[in-house]
Structure formats: C-alpha cells, structure tokens
Amino acid sequence: MQTIKSKRAVGLAIRYVVLLIFAVIFLFPVVELILKAFMTDEDIASGALFPSVFTVAAFPKAIDSGYFWWLKNTLIIGVINMVGITLSSSLCAYGFAKLKFKGRELVFSIVIATLMLPSICMQIPLYKLYFGMGWTNTWLPLIIPGFCGGGAINIFLMRQYMKGIPDSVCEAAKVDGANKFLIYLVIVMPMCLPIAGYVMLMSFLGCWNDFMTPLLYINEQSLYNLSLGLYYRYVNNAGSIPPANVQMAAATVMLLPCIILFFFFQKVLINGVSVGAVKG
C-alpha cells in the first residue's frame, strides 16, 4: 500500500518538474519581451535579462501619435470584421446545417476544399482585381472578404455546432409559422452563442494580427494597421531602428489585448477548438 502511494507521489513530482521546466522555456520569450520594455537604454546595451531599474521611459517613445492612429485603425477594422465574419459565417452555417436544398452537400464540399488552396495563389492576383476596382490603398480588401462567408473554418465550426441542435426544435417553430430567417434569429443563434463567441474572438484576433493582407494592398501610412506600422518602423526601416526597449514597448502594448482576451475567454477558446476536434 505504502509503495503504491509513494510511487504515485514520485510520478506526480516528475510530472510537475518536467512541466515546470517546459513552462520556464515557453514563458521566457514573452516575459523577456515585457521586461525589456521596462529597461533603460544602458540595460539594453549591456544585455541584462532583468532591468536594474524599472522605467517606463521607452513607452512614450514607442507610443506616439502614429502608433495611436494605427491602433485606432486596427480596432476599427477588427470590430467590423468581428461583426461581418460572425454574421456571414453563421448565416451560411445555418444554411448548411439546418436547411435542406439541392446542391447543399456539393457547395459545402467546395467550401471545405478551399481550405487546401494556398492563400498566396489568390492574394497576388487579387491585387490586380482590387487595383482595377480602386480598392488598393483602402480598407475594403481587409473588410469585404469577411462579409462573404467569413472563412471556411468558421463556417465549418458553426455548422458542426448547429447540427447538435435538435431538428425538432426548428420543426416546432416552423409549425408555429416562423420562417427560416426567424428560426435562425430567434432559435438557432441564441443556442449558438458559445461558438459564435469563439468565432468573434478568433476573427478579432485574426484581424489584430493580420500582416499579409495590409502588406500587399496598402501603401498609405495613414491606413496601416498596427502590424504593418510596426513592421515598417522596426523591421523594414531604411533609417535607424530604435533600441530594443522601444521596440519591446511597442510590441508589449500590441500584445496586451491578445493576452487579456485570451485570459478572459480561455474557456470560449478551448471549447471552440473542441467543437471542431471532437465532432470533426
């Protein structure tokens, strides 16, 4: 009896030690990012891992009016996409999950097949299309595609979730005289809030992190999102690039919303992933 117990305790201890070592490794870059943001220029130059004095001196240098402008742009684009993607993917998912019409399976398999297409094959020629329509150097390429289906993954997840809602509920509403849109709005959507929350969260974060789309279609500095602004300031900058504490201060502020959203909506996130994993 005693040996089994002690054996278990040893097993548990080993598990914690291994996990802790990995945790230190995984935390190192993010912690170092935040610590470097609070360092003095001297600490940066000497390569200290921990600031000798905590200072916020780097923040005003990083967060100037340009930064705020890009932050505002990113927020606007993010919120519009959050609404557009959720709305449009839920409508499509409802069509695929709850309505029966000829060609449904075919259209759905085409939607899923688009997941396999390399996005670069579309993004380069889209430049010409956007250029022809006068969309380059506007936010339209960052916004309009979201309203057109909202991405195969989101449609797939929403559909999986909606399939879990019993058909009898929808049938009952139909007998009561509700039309398809009303059933979507009043019955299906309220039951889909967890997955809708996940899609909203992911589409906002996707937009927040998006770098490729603005890089290809936007040259105007006043239209940059935060990703592109930081890229031209700290990565692809022909002039002199500010020291690491300023870079990290800019990066820390950009990372902050991601971490806050992540901590608050962890459950939503992990549940959303499981919908695809378990029922997929």
Partner: peptide
Amino acid sequence: VVYYLPVMLPAVVSGILWSS
C-alpha cells in the same frame, strides 16, 4: 495557458522579439 501563450504573439511582435 502558459504553453499556448507564444501562439498568441502576432507575427510582427514575434519577428521583432526573436530578432532581438
């Protein structure tokens, strides 16, 4: 949460961070 944290880094932030 700790193991998932680095996934949350935006591409640009991760680029700036690792370059440094």
